[in-house]
Write a protein that binds this DNA or RNA. Sequence first.
DNA 1: ACCTGAACACCGTTCAAGT
DNA 2: ACCTGAACACCGTTCAAGT
Lengths: 252, 252
Amino acid sequence: MTTLTRKQREVRDREAQILEVARNMLLEQGYHGLSMDRIAEALEYSKGTMYQHFSCKEEIILALVNASLTDRLVIFRKAASYPSRPRERIAAVGVGVELFVRLYPHHFKLEQVLRLSSVWEKTSPERRQFMHHCESQCVGCVSGIVRDAIAQGDLTLPEGVTPEQLVFGLWSMSFGAQTILASSTSLVDIGIGDPHRALAQNQARLLDGYGWRPLSSEFDYEALSERIAREYFAKETEQAMKLAQKANRNSA
Amino acid sequence: MTTLTRKQREVRDREAQILEVARNMLLEQGYHGLSMDRIAEALEYSKGTMYQHFSCKEEIILALVNASLTDRLVIFRKAASYPSRPRERIAAVGVGVELFVRLYPHHFKLEQVLRLSSVWEKTSPERRQFMHHCESQCVGCVSGIVRDAIAQGDLTLPEGVTPEQLVFGLWSMSFGAQTILASSTSLVDIGIGDPHRALAQNQARLLDGYGWRPLSSEFDYEALSERIAREYFAKETEQAMKLAQKANRNSA
DNA sequence: ACCTGAACACCGTTCAAGT
DNA sequence: ACCTGAACACCGTTCAAGT
């Protein structure tokens, strides 16, 4: 009979179960702690059954990344729709990224693993394509804002510079900062007390460097970002707060 | 007697042999291709002997990172000593980083692996400290240039912004761009034809955003960077060219 | 048709036995 | 004192045998 109830559980989406267990394992024990053996054990499935859902371990990792990227795209689209001047919409994207990082603390760890060539090369073209789709949609969101700014006269790009290059600048800075932040090297040592704030300010200075108006000297983007988080992303901010409280309780 | 000649080889620094084999394995076959078994086999040592030099696999990775970071520090120091105005010295650091990436193509792959928490946590405090020393020296090189710029009046940082925060901006953008570049996701897809050039321009715009003079609109930093590579870093540039030719021959 | 778990080929790491 | 390789506990993956 215990077999029966277990079978009933199995019927309900097993794939989601596998992904959830895998996500928690990665979050709590890192890449080395994530193993097919232990996922199967935790879910009381045989190892063989895992391979009916995912052809290899790396596919699970990519599936998890795709799941969070899908949610990230929703956030990006909402941010890009913030009804204001283009540079304020970019600030909204920045707020969105920070919320995403706080809501999906496992995502950057997963992306680090996925970017190892030996992991990436084992993934299937189908899932890779889905990931590229999400990524190019996110880039498209932001480059769309850049184009709007140009159309409205807030920004004039120098000859030879494409909107995508500017997006690459924002992306690489954000990605680099988040990766440095997620990995163990302490930033406090070298004198960065509030890395999120430092990132936001550096991003703003990059846009200033391209002459995107209103410049950060003409407008208080820090206050705007706080307002966007509190009002426009109220639901997401509240969720992030709850998650932080739970994490605090666990560590205490 | 064959045993004797092998022993003679063993006497000469075995540690360096292990590191060289490991570096090539990682470069050619990725993280999954790097194993204690295969290093021992390639060098005709027993597995046990490996553990007299390195207490675990992760220590080899960190030792490799420390070796390339040591060389990177030499490049940073040379770049920071470029006899010119501070912003031109920053450009020299940019050239240095690009040369480093080309001369040590394995470094960013290694750093990606090392930043996985499950890898980092297994490393020894001694080697970690060495790595932190190299990193903070590199940061110190660049923040020293920032301070010189402030002292000479080329740059005025806004209140509450430290030189380290600016360095963090350059660092995160560079690190993010290199990591995105080193991993498989194609940048060409999203319209970045020459990522190194895009990075250099974005870095320049970040400095422009902080008002660091001469601005990129007032000075041709691209031409300067080419000259620095050709003249100031002549030896390193030549080495990088040779390496690129060898890589081309291997792939052809 | 689906699930199982033994089996295989590999890992990293240890350590008793050799020299 | 140093080196060896068998042994151990774990991997990811496969597949013949069951239901």
